[in-house]
Simulated scan of single mutants.
Amino acid sequence: MPEKTTFKLLIVEDDPGIATMLNTFFTSRDVSTQVAPDGRQALELVTSFEPDIIILDIVLPYVDGLSVLDTLQKQAIRIPVILLTDKRSVEEKLAGFEHGADDYVTKPFSPKELWMRVQAILRRSKPSSENTQGTVTVGNLSIDPLMREVLFRGKIPLAFTKTEFDLLYYLAQRQSQAVAHASLLSEVMGYSSTSQTKALVIHVANIRKKFKANNIHDVELAAVPGIGYKLLS
């Protein structure tokens, strides 16, 4: 018997065959689903359906996947997104992270692989024993794992994707310590190997961009050559 669960999933896919396959697979696991064949309907369902997670194709009619991500960012809607991308297009994958996606799966894919990615992201969204210490402060940043909120100078909220938040909090808990790429990939992003290092690099770059855009100068996400990263204040 497949593992039973309960969460709300929005599938955004214009290929009827893929959409039906995903819908059948996830509903058989007791997941509440809605399917949108284009970006316009996807944005409407984000409001009416309020999904916990979104599986989003990039190439869509009317409003493409990257534009959907941009709209979510502008409206400060923090729903994790897994992109479905063409295996041949590395640029699509990198662009997806830059626009706020949390993960990607390349076509053709196994539904079980996608299931594992969804589960990994949803697990990261739940409070765990590691965040029982509560809010962590680094420089002028306060990072609250229960509210999943980052405040600058105690009052200005900053928008991070779920993966960006998880990376930032994990590093903040180990402030000034060098954390290996492998640890970030496995413990935070849910990857079993270091083959997704490029994805980590993009997420780190996005965090740095947000630091710069918000004039955060007393916190640095520094690279440690040959090892990984550390958060400094």
Rank of each mutant, 00 (worst) to 15 (best):
N214W: 06
S67R: 12
W115K: 08
S48R: 12
Q73R: 14
N140L: 04
G100L: 03
V31G: 02
T27C: 12
R117S: 04
Y170H: 14
L43M: 14
T132L: 15
M1V: 05
L167F: 07
V105A: 13
F165H: 10
L94D: 01
P16Y: 15
E130P: 00
F211P: 00
V219I: 11
A36Q: 01
K210D: 03
A182S: 14
R123P: 01
F7Y: 15
I121N: 05
Q133V: 09
P157K: 14
D57V: 03
L69C: 03
T33H: 04
S110T: 05
I82S: 06
L66V: 03
T33Y: 02
Q73E: 10
V136K: 15
E149Q: 15
E149N: 12
L66C: 03
T163K: 11
I121D: 04
I55Y: 01
R78D: 02
F25N: 07
G228A: 11
A178K: 09
I53N: 01
L151W: 08
S176G: 06
I79E: 00
L94K: 09
W115L: 07
S110Y: 06
Q173T: 10
V138K: 11
E187C: 08
D144G: 09
L45G: 01
P51E: 00
L56N: 04
T163Q: 10
G39Q: 05
D52H: 14
V63S: 02
A178Y: 05
K74M: 05
G39W: 00
S176N: 13
M1S: 14
E92P: 00
D14T: 01
P108S: 15
V224M: 13
F152I: 07
V150G: 09
D102H: 08
A180N: 05
K230F: 12
M21S: 14
K8Q: 01
D15F: 09
R78W: 01
S28K: 13
L84C: 06
G134Q: 10
P111H: 14
L200H: 09
S28E: 11
N206V: 07
S142R: 13
D103N: 13
G134V: 07
N131I: 06
I79D: 02
S32D: 08
L45P: 01
L146C: 03
H217Y: 12
A76Q: 11
D52T: 04
F109H: 10
V105C: 07
E187T: 06
E149F: 03
K210A: 08
I77H: 05
V105P: 00
G65D: 02
D103P: 02
P51S: 02
I143K: 13
I216K: 09
K212D: 11
S195I: 05
A199L: 05
R117N: 07
A199P: 00
V46E: 01
N140M: 08
L232C: 10
G100N: 09
T197E: 12
